[in-house]
């Protein structure tokens, strides 16, 4: 990412961007994994249930069949696991090597 120093702002005004706090996926110690065999939406191949999407506090789960979880930004809270009526999601430990590979930059706003 190129760095330029052309800020023309007189006052502090922020623009929306994904990853405002950086790659919050790095916050995770546990990773949610969807079991397509159990997920109703995955099994039926259409938009049904969607409890995980509706309750995700971080808007990282898509409203798709099957739902997809954005691992760049999923903080691993596990709410989706709790709200899934079919017990289709489980939290698995992150692999040590994945954590090491992630970027630690403060502002890594990618749009």
């Amino acid at each position: 990412m190129g760095q330029t120093r052309h800020c023309k702002q007189k006052t502090a005004m922020s623009w929306p961007c994904v990853g405002e706090a950086g790659r919050t996926g790095d916050w995770r110690t546990l990773r949610p994994v969807v079991d397509p065999e159990k997920c109703v939406a995955a099994r039926k191949g259409k938009i049904v249930c969607m409890q995980c999407w509706m309750f995700c506090p971080d808007n990282v789960i898509s409203r798709t069949a099957p739902p997809e979880i954005d691992m760049e930004y999923c903080k691993g809270c596990g709410v989706c696991v709790q709200v899934c009526p079919s017990q289709a999601i489980e939290m698995r430990p992150e692999h040590a090597e994945d954590v090491a590979a992630s970027t630690k930059e403060e502002a890594s706003c990618d749009r």
Binding site: A21, G22, T24, P57
Partner: peptide, 22 residues
């Protein structure tokens, strides 16, 4: 759940605590 609008106004990768109800 199914008739909630799909449009989102909160972007992923924000600074809230994990599991924050807000």
């Amino acid at each position: 759940t199914l008739n909630l609008p799909e449009q989102e106004y909160m972007l992923p990768g924000n600074r809230a605590c994990a599991g924050c109800s807000v």
